[in-house]
């Protein structure tokens, strides 16, 4: 049984695009990254999964169950929305207790623990919290019942780097205990760090779904060279070359394919400098983004 299974999930808002034919199956215990620019359909996908909006067609299940027909399956779900809003005139601790009351287990100890790790003052009123502190309330609220599935929608916005670090540690610890994590973000480096697999969504469609290790090792290379003389433009007109930039006698591009082909090309040039690096996910993603767009 998959932790999350989306089958041909489609949501249309009238003539507007929502998401089209999204297919994702997430194994239990996995950390799954969901990457795309703003407005690509990440939140729409998550909201459909949680039953906040209903799909036009297709299906979305959590541990094999539709969350609208079987709301009890949400007991296993912790959700951190991208923007957190709570009942303003409640105290943090009261809100968290209210949240805990839905799960029918004692979460007090857990609340104290999480608040300590995140340095959150439980006695304050929600109203008086800064954006970052509200986000912390969101994190505690999402984790206090030790859910088996954690759904994060742009979780790190508003958190300072130290808190981001602690947050990632929390998520990693939960994952080690067996929790599945569905992590949506447009910041690619954070996904790169945590995830086992990653799906790219763009304009409502999944354009790529790959293992992180494959993605990283797929011999994408960022090549930067400097040459003694100007290089002919057509030299690098090869299959697998993208993001080609040329300024005078310095050239940079991303290469995907057989390394030998490109080293052969480079050998024909008289180089002053050469660097070959693994591009970060951002570059790989932008590469997709440009190609598919």
């Amino acid at each position: 049984m998959y932790a999350i299974e989306l089958k041909n999930l489609t949501k249309q808002y009238g003539a507007e695009r929502g998401i089209i034919d999204v297919n994702i199956a997430i194994e239990q215990g996995e950390i799954f990254g969901f990457i795309g620019p703003n407005g690509a359909g990440k939140s729409t996908t998550i909201r459909t999964l949680l039953g906040l909006i209903k799909p036009t067609s297709g299906s979305a299940t959590i541990f094999g169950k539709n969350s609208v027909q079987h709301p009890e399956v949400r007991k296993e779900v912790g959700y951190l929305p991208s923007e957190v809003f709570y009942y303003d005139n409640m105290r943090v601790v009261d809100l968290l207790k209210y949240s805990a009351s839905f799960y029918k287990k004692d979460c007090n100890k857990r609340i104290q623990e999480l608040a300590k790790v995140l340095d959150l003052d439980l006695k304050k009123k929600i109203n008086d919290l800064s954006f970052g502190n509200k986000k912390k309330v969101g994190i505690v609220q999402g984790l206090l019942h030790e859910p088996k599935l954690i759904i994060l929608d742009e979780p790190t916005s508003g958190l300072d780097p130290l808190m981001q670090q602690r947050f990632f540690e929390l998520i990693e610890a939960e994952n080690k205990k067996g929790a599945t994590v569905f992590f949506s973000s447009h910041i690619l480096s954070e996904v790169q760090r945590l995830c086992d697999r990653v799906a790219f969504i763009k304009k409502g469609k999944i354009i790529q779904l790959e293992r992180m290790s494959v993605l990283k090792e797929h011999s994408y290379k960022r090549v930067v060279i400097e040459t003694k003389t100007d290089v002919d433009k057509d030299v690098f007109a090869l299959d697998g070359v993208s993001d080609l930039k040329q300024a005078g006698n310095s050239v940079s591009f991303i290469y995907k394919g057989n390394i030998n082909v490109i080293t052969e090309k480079l050998a024909q040039l008289e180089l002053i400098n050469l660097s070959v690096e693994d591009p970060d996910l951002e570059e790989i993603f932008l590469h997709y983004y440009e190609k598919e767009g």
Binding site: L50, G51, L52, P71, E72, V73, R74, K75, V77, Y79, P81, E83, V84, F85, Y86, Y87, D88, S99, F102, Y103, Q141
Partner: peptide, 17 residues
């Protein structure tokens, strides 16, 4: 309107409840 639906409506209770 107070945007708390994302809190309440993802709890393990049906909307009719």
């Amino acid at each position: 309107s107070e945007r708390t639906a994302d809190f309440l409506l993802v709890k393990p209770v049906s909307r009719s409840a």
